[in-house]
Amino acid sequence: MKEQAQWRQEGGCSCGQIRYAITAPPMFVHCCHCHWCQRETGSAFALNAMIESSHVEVITGTPEVIMTPSESGKGQIIHRCPTCRMAVWSHYAGAGEAVAFVRVGTLDNPECAPPDIHIYTDSKQPWVIIPPGASQHPGYYKPREEWPESSQKRFMALKNREK
């Protein structure tokens, strides 16, 4: 990945009312195959780039913030376009509002954020083929065992700010 200071990717919703930029590379990118993500996205998986919320910059529009249920029971805060209702990023209870889970498909260049890990593969659709050698787990995983050290440091810096 490019140096954090030089990195910028833009994205937005399908109608164009919401435009945003992420101003640092993602800490980690999840490809989640759980049934909840399948239902929520209407697809076989959700692809979310985890990034500090401070690196999500709204360029135009004002996302609508909606609280939705989640499988954990703790809920999920989703930022959606108020017109086309597309979800552009969300916050999960485990990471809090300090971390945004940006929907990779809403980026103008989604190829900039390929999955680092495939999770909940025990419920993936049988026709989804995970590339050989890709990191995958039947459920969740231990970030300390999967995340690069630089991402762990970024995440710990967020946790330390919350204290």
Rank of each mutant, 00 (worst) to 15 (best):
104 V>W: 00
104 V>P: 00
93 A>R: 03
106 T>S: 13
121 T>P: 01
32 C>S: 02
107 L>N: 02
1 M>G: 14
57 E>T: 12
2 K>Q: 04
90 S>H: 04
84 C>A: 06
12 G>N: 04
50 M>R: 06
52 E>F: 02
48 N>D: 13
127 W>A: 05
16 G>S: 11
161 R>V: 03
22 I>L: 08
81 C>G: 09
34 C>T: 02
121 T>Q: 12
44 A>Q: 09
99 V>Y: 06
34 C>R: 02
121 T>E: 08
134 A>G: 07
138 P>R: 10
161 R>S: 09
63 P>K: 03
9 Q>A: 14
41 T>S: 14
97 E>P: 04
38 Q>A: 08
4 Q>N: 09
149 E>F: 02
93 A>E: 14
13 C>M: 08
41 T>N: 10
71 E>F: 05
101 F>Y: 14
152 Q>H: 10
48 N>H: 12
48 N>L: 15
128 V>C: 12
25 P>F: 09
76 Q>T: 15
37 C>V: 09
116 D>Q: 00
25 P>H: 05
83 T>F: 10
39 R>F: 14
8 R>P: 04
96 G>T: 04
123 S>K: 01
92 Y>D: 12
61 G>A: 11
64 E>T: 00
56 V>F: 09
39 R>D: 12
32 C>H: 05
43 S>L: 10
5 A>V: 11
149 E>K: 11
88 V>R: 03
42 G>V: 08
112 C>S: 12
32 C>Y: 00
99 V>I: 15
152 Q>N: 11
15 C>Q: 03
142 K>Y: 11
148 P>G: 01
74 K>R: 15
127 W>C: 01
33 H>Y: 07
160 N>H: 11
155 F>D: 01
93 A>G: 10
74 K>V: 12
62 T>D: 13
112 C>V: 13
12 G>S: 07
96 G>D: 04
157 A>R: 11
136 Q>M: 10
70 S>P: 06
39 R>K: 15
132 P>C: 03
30 H>I: 12
82 P>D: 09
50 M>E: 08
24 A>E: 08
123 S>E: 08
69 P>E: 14
137 H>P: 00
38 Q>F: 07
50 M>C: 13
35 H>C: 11
92 Y>M: 15
158 L>D: 07
151 S>M: 04
42 G>W: 03
148 P>V: 01
102 V>F: 07
109 N>G: 03
130 I>F: 03
154 R>H: 09
5 A>W: 05
3 E>F: 00
154 R>L: 15
60 T>R: 07
51 I>V: 15
49 A>V: 11
120 Y>I: 09
97 E>L: 03
16 G>Y: 07
17 Q>H: 11
65 V>R: 09
3 E>D: 10
80 R>H: 10
144 R>D: 15
67 M>C: 04
18 I>N: 06
8 R>T: 10
46 A>Y: 00
84 C>Q: 00
58 V>R: 02
123 S>Y: 00
53 S>T: 14
139 G>P: 05
107 L>E: 01
128 V>E: 13
72 S>V: 04
142 K>C: 13
72 S>N: 01
64 E>I: 02
160 N>A: 14
109 N>P: 00
49 A>I: 10
26 P>K: 05
124 K>F: 06
82 P>E: 07
113 A>K: 05
45 F>G: 00
85 R>A: 12
133 G>K: 06
70 S>M: 08
